[in-house]
Amino acid sequence: MEIPYTVEAHPETGLNNGKIGIWLFLTSEVMLFGALFATFIMLRIGSDGNWAAMQAEAELNIPLATLNTAVLIASSLTMVMAWASLMRGQLGRFKVFGWLTVGCGGIFLVIKYFEYTAKFEHHHYPESSTFLAIYFAMTGLHALHVIGGMAWNAYFTGPGSKLFHTNRQWLTDRVEHSGLFWHFVDLVWIFLFPVFYLL
């Protein structure tokens, strides 16, 4: 049985099912991170001016985080380039950009790992202060999203790319949808970086 509008666009909405589905999913993600940002603001307001002290004590590594921001932005570029390659019908270039995206995600996680272990070595744990607690909660959840996005992209770049030969449009759409998720993860980091490291 075929589900209608899996690939072709619905005549009224002009969209296929997957596009609507992924955007709906992203709205729930907005509310998830929104609640965490609200928590962040509330903890900061409620800290009676101790926030800056807690932040200084945590000794977050700004150069590494700047590098990580650049890595993630670069991965967003390779992500759209992967999609654009599929739009042009270039399977080989798609695979190159796809693996570059996954690779950038990997570099991001490796850097994040070094940041975390450096914290633990200095006995900075989530329990040390509310600043570190919300720092680990939000960056940790973000890292889980990066892992999820990497798995998703790796599937479509690897085994899932066979679809190119049978239904190219479907593969292009699926890559666009996983790209939307990937860009959203990037977008969250764009806020996390200044909020934790700089402000």
Partner: peptide
């Protein structure tokens, strides 16, 4: 739209 904030709260309480 209403469940994700509880999911966030649940993660925080778990922590």
């Amino acid at each position: 739209l209403a469940f994700p904030p509880l999911e966030a709260a649940g993660v925080l309480q778990l922590m």
